[in-house]
């Protein structure tokens, strides 16, 4: 094992002046990532220079400029492709993708689902503010139905995507959610994502105080968090509230599973749903991701964490096996492996 350097938060802050709007949720995400990086380096046995941040286009995608790591601010929607190419050719690097709801789910939707499906060992931070900020306020693929924006003055007609549902359907092996301003939970999730081998996606609810202020307040505002969010923990009952007095149970309704909220005191404790992030069956994660305010608390934390070999690992293995079986390639010999003849 190589020696692990000791880092502090400052080691990950670049000299560039941060240029998000004052009050933007992105500041908080940046601070949490910088804070948790030293721990990530220790836990994953990585050096700072081996950690790379790759982004697409949008407010969130300015992120790499503010980290003092190798960073690549690429083009709209394509960060997962560039990150995949880097990770496949340099599997020892730890590659993070920073993206937003427009970047990842609209213009880059195809790349996101395929990066997740392949299980490339990428750590994808999806900043979801349900709006296009950098282009000054059009609706995004996660905006709520009826949302009035500059491009939908009479309200949007489109149903929003649920990023967690998309990640599940794309066979992502690590799926989590966090609130930008909830530091402790976010650092926990970031660390878990870093330690996960395979594609990890974290949806981060991030407030755009200029174009979509308060959109998550119903559950993300400090005063509402205890009542209206539930932090998922593997093997633990899914309970929430100030004193964890409320819980989630599951019943069958016309053959479909349906969650409902109970008072813990009123039910047999064993009837309360116990979270299993490692379940090979994605149904539970899907069901949890359906829960939303006001009827339910919004689940945060890790929805799914399953073990599958990563694409970069498998590709590396294919190369290794091919060399073992056939010997290292000899181009001079290979070019002559077709039918040849000699002219003298």
């Amino acid at each position: 094992m190589s020696e692990v350097a000791e880092y502090t938060r400052k080691d990950f802050a670049s000299e560039q002046e941060v240029r998000w709007c004052p009050g933007c949720g992105d500041y908080s995400i940046l601070a949490q990532v910088q804070r948790v990086m030293p721990e990530i380096c220790i836990e994953t046995n990585q050096k700072k220079e081996d950690i790379v941040f790759i982004s697409g286009i949008g407010c969130s995608s300015r992120f790499p400029y503010y980290m003092d790591n190798f960073g690549f601010h690429t083009i709209h929607g394509r960060a997962p492709t560039i990150a995949s190419g880097l990770k496949l050719s340099r599997p020892n690097l730890q590659v993070w993708v920073v993206t937003g709801d427009g970047d990842a789910l609209s213009i880059g939707g195809n790349h996101l689902i395929h990066a997740l499906r392949r299980n490339v060992d990428l750590k994808i931070l999806l900043f979801n503010n349900q709006i296009y900020g950098l282009t000054k306020g059009q609706y995004s693929p996660t905006s709520k139905v009826g949302k009035k924006t500059k491009s939908s003055p009479l309200g949007t007609l489109e149903r929003p995507l649920n990023p967690v549902h998309l990640a599940i359907a794309s066979e992502a092996t690590f799926i989590a959610r966090a609130i930008a301003t909830e530091g402790t939970q976010m650092r926990d999730v970031l660390l878990q994502a870093a330690k996960h081998k395979g594609s990890a996606i974290i949806e981060i609810f991030q407030n755009c105080n200029v174009f979509n202020d308060g959109t998550f307040d119903a559950f993300a505002a400090k005063k509402n968090q205890l009542e209206n969010t539930v932090y998922l923990q593997h093997g633990e009952p899914v309970t929430f509230g100030k004193d964890n007095e409320k819980g989630i149970c599951i019943r069958t309704d016309h053959g479909a599973l349906e969650p409902y909220v109970v008072n813990v005191a009123d039910v047999d404790k064993s009837s309360i749903l116990v979270h299993d992030e490692q379940s090979p069956n994605a149904a539970l994660a899907y069901l949890l991701a359906q829960m939303d305010v006001p009827e339910f608390p919004v689940p945060l934390g890790v929805f799914r964490k399953i073990n599958r070999p990563s694409y970069d690992e498998l590709l590396e293995k294919q190369v290794k096996t091919a060399i073992e079986e056939r010997g290292p390639g000899d181009l001079n010999k290979y070019m002559r492996s077709a039918e040849t003849w000699t002219v003298s």
Binding site: R78, S84, G85, K87, L88, L315, A322
Partner: peptide, 21 residues
């Protein structure tokens, strides 16, 4: 066995993106 890595990308854009990466 030449150590060459190839990837069949999901589309043309991804293919060039991977190559750039």
């Amino acid at each position: 066995h030449f150590g060459i890595k190839t990837a069949q990308a999901e589309d043309e854009i991804s293919a060039v993106g991977m190559a750039i990466g």
